[in-house]
Simulated assay, not measured.
Amino acid sequence: MASLIQSIRDVYLASKKKEDIAWNIYVARPIAAILVALLRPTPLTPNQVTFLGVAIFFVAAAAFIALPGAWGFLVGALLVQLSYLFDCADGQLARLKSMTSEVGSHLDFLMDELKAMTLAGALGVRLWMLDAQPYWLIVATAGVFLVGAATSLTNFVRRPEYAGQEIKPGDSARKRAMPASLIGKVVWLAEAVARYFVHYPSWIMWVALAAFVLPFDAAIVFLVLYLGVYMVYLARTTLAILLKLAHPGFYRS
């Protein structure tokens, strides 16, 4: 037992990043370290762990659709958290087993975006199942489009041909120091809030629990916040691309 505890501690310390979000530091990575310590002696590969996490997420999506009420949303949220633990574990397992690869990093990013699209679609279908209003199917379709379009734009602006430098998966999530100017601080704060809401494992549980004591539907509140951030990101990134690439000076740079 002592050796297992020491192994878990070593895994957690090795998994810590210089810059990380609070949910990962205090919740996800400590628990994922237990999972990594248990998986380390098994023949499972990091990519297989990634795919297991995706499979669990699909079960979460099915739970959101099939289980009504606050308890149903809580079950789905708990399964989302379990899936995220596998998402945290795959990279650390890759480092421990010396199985890191560039393709694995991109696979992890791809699966994250697939899960984000699945979540938006599943919650839209959940709301349609609850009251049979067809506009929820439009919301589900629009949600999948928003996340998919945002992913495509993110992949585009991360290209070295556009960004002027190589940006590896995860680099864009790193924190930036708060600027000195007032406008810079406001933008920095808005971006920090947006990053928080995009990282849904950090707050979906709070929405699920709040639905037991507050008179709101957890799926509606979650979708409004989650898709709202994607809409702002999509508009901002599209405008930035248009201003940069449509300007005649682009061809002289």
Rank of each mutant, 00 (worst) to 15 (best):
L96Q: 13
M231Y: 14
A140P: 07
A33E: 06
R176W: 12
R9M: 01
W188V: 11
L123Q: 09
D131M: 01
G124S: 11
V80W: 05
M111I: 13
L214F: 15
W128D: 01
K97C: 06
L137F: 10
A190W: 05
L209Y: 14
S3L: 10
A122R: 03
E166S: 13
L38M: 09
F58I: 13
T237K: 01
F51Y: 11
I21V: 14
M231I: 10
D20K: 07
V80C: 11
A22K: 06
A211N: 14
R174D: 04
E191N: 15
I56F: 02
N155Q: 09
A219L: 06
P43I: 02
K168E: 10
P215S: 05
P248T: 02
G76T: 02
M205Q: 13
V157D: 07
R95S: 07
V54N: 10
D217H: 03
G249L: 08
A218D: 07
L96G: 14
L107G: 11
S98Q: 12
P43F: 06
T238I: 04
M111D: 08
Y162C: 05
A22Q: 04
N155S: 04
W71S: 15
A218M: 04
L245D: 11
L182D: 04
R195E: 03
A173D: 15
A62E: 01
L225A: 14
W206M: 09
S181Q: 05
E166A: 09
S202T: 04
Y233T: 01
N24V: 12
S3E: 10
L223Q: 04
A63T: 05
D90T: 03
H199R: 10
T141N: 08
L4D: 10
A94N: 13
Y230D: 00
R9P: 01
L245R: 11
H106N: 07
G148T: 05
Q6C: 07
G148V: 01
Y12D: 01
K97L: 11
